[in-house]
Computed example of a mutant assay.
Amino acid sequence: MQKQGIKNLAFVMDSGLRSIPLAALHDGKQFLIEKYSLGMLPSLSLTDTSYVDIKNSQVLAMGASEFTKDQNQNPLQAVPLEVSTIVQKLWPGKLLLNKDFTLNNLKAQRRQNPFGMIHLATHVDFVPGQSSKSYIQLYDTKLRLDQVRQLGWNKPPVELLVLSACKSAFGDEQAELGFAGLAIQTGVKSAIASLWYVSDAGTLGLMTEFYSQLKTAPIKAEALRQAQLAMIQGKVRIEGNQLTGINRGVSLPPQMASYLQQNIVGNLSHPFYWAPFTMIGSPW
Results as ranks from 00 to 15, higher is better:
residue 67 F to G: 11
residue 280 I to E: 10
residue 82 E to F: 03
residue 161 L to I: 01
residue 153 W to Q: 09
residue 89 K to I: 03
residue 168 S to C: 05
residue 213 Q to P: 06
residue 165 A to Y: 04
residue 203 T to L: 07
residue 97 L to K: 09
residue 54 I to E: 04
residue 156 P to E: 15
residue 123 H to Q: 09
residue 276 P to L: 03
residue 94 K to L: 14
residue 20 I to R: 04
residue 144 R to S: 12
residue 216 T to F: 12
residue 232 I to Q: 13
residue 74 N to R: 10
residue 107 K to N: 12
residue 2 Q to D: 10
residue 281 G to S: 08
residue 58 Q to D: 12
residue 93 G to E: 08
residue 106 L to C: 09
residue 197 Y to C: 02
residue 269 S to P: 05
residue 14 D to H: 11
residue 42 P to D: 08
residue 59 V to I: 15
residue 136 I to N: 08
residue 261 Q to E: 14
residue 262 Q to V: 06
residue 120 L to Y: 01
residue 193 A to R: 02
residue 88 Q to M: 08
residue 278 T to L: 06
residue 24 A to K: 12
residue 269 S to V: 01
residue 27 D to P: 02
residue 172 D to A: 11
residue 17 L to R: 13
residue 39 G to I: 00
residue 261 Q to H: 08
residue 239 E to I: 14
residue 25 L to Y: 11
residue 8 N to C: 12
residue 134 S to R: 05
residue 116 G to N: 07
residue 252 L to K: 10
residue 132 S to G: 08
residue 158 V to F: 07
residue 220 K to G: 02
residue 26 H to A: 00
residue 63 G to A: 10
residue 260 L to F: 09
residue 282 S to C: 15
residue 77 Q to F: 10
residue 183 A to D: 06
residue 110 R to G: 08
residue 66 E to I: 04
residue 274 W to F: 11
residue 196 W to E: 03
residue 134 S to F: 07
residue 199 S to Y: 08
residue 58 Q to T: 09
residue 238 I to P: 01
residue 122 T to N: 10
residue 168 S to Y: 10
residue 38 L to E: 12
residue 150 Q to I: 00
residue 13 M to P: 01
residue 7 K to S: 14
residue 83 V to A: 11
residue 255 Q to E: 15
residue 126 F to Y: 14
residue 136 I to G: 06
residue 75 P to I: 00
residue 54 I to S: 01
residue 278 T to R: 01
residue 158 V to T: 12
residue 6 I to A: 14
residue 258 S to K: 15
residue 233 Q to K: 15
residue 277 F to S: 03
residue 6 I to S: 03
residue 53 D to Y: 06
residue 93 G to I: 08
residue 160 L to W: 09
residue 130 Q to G: 01
residue 193 A to G: 15
residue 146 D to A: 06
residue 246 I to F: 00
residue 73 Q to L: 15
residue 22 L to H: 11
residue 263 N to M: 13
residue 134 S to N: 07
residue 35 K to D: 08
residue 279 M to F: 06
residue 100 D to P: 00
residue 108 A to W: 00
residue 230 A to Q: 09
residue 91 W to K: 04
residue 82 E to M: 11
residue 193 A to Q: 03
residue 62 M to K: 03
residue 35 K to Y: 06
residue 237 R to N: 13
residue 69 K to V: 07
residue 97 L to N: 05
residue 16 G to F: 12
residue 53 D to L: 05
residue 18 R to A: 04
residue 181 G to V: 00
residue 138 L to Y: 02
residue 243 L to V: 03
residue 252 L to M: 10
residue 266 G to C: 08
residue 3 K to F: 07
residue 258 S to H: 11
residue 222 E to Q: 13
residue 109 Q to M: 14
residue 249 G to C: 00
residue 148 V to A: 08
residue 241 N to M: 03
residue 190 S to M: 05
residue 114 P to A: 15
residue 207 M to D: 11
residue 62 M to I: 02
residue 237 R to C: 07
residue 124 V to C: 15
residue 188 V to W: 07
residue 27 D to H: 03
residue 95 L to Q: 14
residue 276 P to Q: 07
residue 172 D to C: 06
residue 114 P to L: 12
residue 153 W to L: 15
residue 49 T to N: 13
residue 179 F to Y: 09
residue 88 Q to C: 01
